[in-house]
Design a protein around this nucleic acid. Structure first.
Lengths: 253, 253
DNA sequence: CGTTCGATTGAGGAAGATCAATTAATGTGG
DNA sequence: CCACATTAATTGATCTTCCTCAATCGAACG
C-alpha cells in the first residue's frame, strides 16, 4: 500500500477530486505569472534566506508575487509577540494585508533563495482595467488566502498536537502537488521552533510528534538532516489526522 | 482609574492612535454602505438568529454586506469539524472565501435579527469600472479581513486561555468603538460553547475565565443574564491580556 | 577540531480538558 | 401566572496533554 515512487505529479487523489483541481491550480500559477509578466513587467528581485521583502509597519506600495523560493509571513504584535501566520510558495501573492491600512502588518521573510516580482499596487489597478482577467486573478488570490487562513485557525483550534503536525505536512504536500511538484518529499526549510510557532506548540512537541510519525512509518527522515521528510503515502498521513479526532484507536505510541 | 462613564464613543485610546483611526473607520462604514446603495441597489434581506445567508459548499454568486445585526462565519471540514472562524458586524463583508473556488467554504449564520445586502459579484465588478472608489473599498475590506484573521491566529497561538478571553472581549469592544457604539457594554449573542469554539477552548474554560475577570472587577455581569458584559475600563482589560504573558504577577486567582 | 546552533529525549509540573453535579435562565402548556 | 421541561452556565474533582526544564546528541561552520 505504500507508495514509494518518485512520480513528480500528485500521486494520490485523497478524498475529493483533487487530481483535476490540482491540474487546474498548477496551470493557474503559470497563467498568473505569464499574465503579470505581460501586463506589468514587474521588477524582479532575488532574495536569500533571511531577507525581508517588507517589514511589519513599512508603508505599503507593492504587492509581490513569489516566483520561486519559500517565504514565511510573520505577524508582529505591539507587545513584541511574533507569530508565523502563513507560508508562501511559488505563485502566491504577498502583501495583501497592507492594502487597507497603507502599511504592512506583517513581515515577509525569505526562508530560501528565491525570486519575487514586485507589483506596484497602483500600476496593478491600472492594468486591471486593460486586462480584466488580472482583476479576477487578484481577487481569487485574496479569496484563497482568506480561506487558507481560516483552515489554519481550524487546525490550531481543533486538532491535538500530533495531528496538527501531520496536517501541517499534508498541507505542505498539497501545496507542492498543486504546483506539480512531488508529494513524497518535503524539505522543511524551517527550524522546529518556527514550525512550533506556526502551529501553536513548543519545539519539543514538534520534535516528539515528528518522531512519533516516523516511528509509525507514516513519514521517514532522510539519512542525514532531520529537515527533509519522506512521505511514503500521503493518504496515510491524512488518515492520521483523522485518527487524532474520534477514537484513541490502537496506534503504536 | 476606572472609567464608569457611558460615553458612547471610544473612551480611551489604548496604545496607538486608535481615536483617530476609530473615527476614520466609523466614517468608512457609512461611506461603504452609501456607495453600495448608490452604485448597485443591493437586494436587502432581513435575517433572524439562526438563519444562514449561505451554507458551506453553496455555489458562490453574491457577496454580502452586513447592515445590521451580528453574524458568525463557520468553517466546515470534510470530516464534520465545525469552527467559528470570524464574527461579523455592521459594515463587514461576507463571502469573500467563495470567489476563488466558486463556492463558499464557510457558512454565514445570523446570531441576531439584522439586515444584509446582497451584492452580486459580477454586478459589483461592473460597478467598479464606473466607480473606482468601489474597487478600493472592496480591496480594503478583503485586506482587513486577511489582517484580522491573522490576528485571531496569533491570539490562539500565543495567549493563555484567560488572556484569550480578555482579548476576545477587547476585540469586540474595539469593533463597537469603530462603529461609534459604546465600549463599556457588550451583549454576547453567543453561548459559552460558541465562544469556546471560536477561541479554541472548552466552554468550561470560557466560563471560568469570565468568572476570573469578573472576580478581578475587570468585567462585570448584568444583574440578570450572563451574556451582557460590562467593561468599566477597556484599558484594564487590555492590560490583563499583556499580564498573561511575561510575569505571573500578583493577580487575585 | 572546538564552538555553536538545532534536534532529540527524559522527567516533572501546570494549564486546560473531561467528567459530573448543581444552579440559573428560558420556554411551554396548562 | 405557575409548574415543569429544556437548555445554558457555573463550579468542583480528576485526568490528560502539553509545556517547562534539563541533559545529551548531532550537524554545520569557521
Amino acid at each position: 500500500m505504500h507508495n514509494t515512487t518518485t512520480n513528480p505529479v500528485a500521486t494520490a487523489a485523497a478524498p475529493s477530486d483533487s487530481t483535476r483541481s490540482d491540474h487546474l491550480a498548477g496551470e493557474r500559477t503559470a497563467e498568473t505569472l505569464a499574465l503579470l509578466k505581460n501586463a506589468i513587467s514587474p521588477q524582479r528581485r532575488v532574495v536569500h534566506a533571511g531577507d525581508e521583502v517588507y517589514q511589519a509597519g513599512a508603508s505599503f506600495r507593492n504587492l509581490y508575487v513569489l516566483n520561486s523560493g519559500l517565504f514565511k509571513i510573520v505577524n508582529l504584535a505591539a507587545d513584541g509577540r511574533e507569530q508565523v501566520v502563513s507560508l508562501k510558495f511559488r505563485g502566491d501573492w504577498l502583501g495583501f494585508d497592507g492594502i487597507a491600512q497603507g502599511r504592512y502588518s506583517c513581515a515577509a521573510v525569505a526562508m530560501d533563495t528565491g525570486e519575487v516580482w514586485a507589483i506596484p499596487y497602483d500600476a496593478l489597478l491600472n492594468a486591471c482595467t486593460a486586462h480584466p482577467a488580472l482583476l479576477t486573478t487578484l481577487h481569487s488570490a485574496m479569496s484563497r488566502e482568506i480561506a487558507r487562513d481560516r483552515d489554519s485557525l481550524m487546525s490550531v483550534c481543533t486538532l491535538p498536537a500530533d495531528a496538527r503536525v501531520a496536517d501541517f505536512l499534508c498541507q505542505w504536500a498539497a501545496s507542492q502537488a498543486q504546483r506539480g511538484m512531488r508529494t513524497d518529499q518535503i524539505i522543511l526549510r524551517m527550524t522546529r521552533a518556527e514550525i512550533g510557532n506556526y502551529l501553536g506548540m513548543t519545539l519539543e512537541t514538534v520534535s516528539r510528534s515528528l518522531a512519533k510519525l516516523a516511528r509509525g512509518n507514516i513519514i521517514a527522515f532522510a539519512e542525514k538532516g532531520r529537515r527533509d521528510v519522506h512521505i511514503p503515502d500521503v493518504n496515510a498521513l491524512a488518515a492520521f489526522v483523522q485518527r487524532g479526532l474520534a477514537p484513541p484507536a490502537l496506534m503504536l505510541q
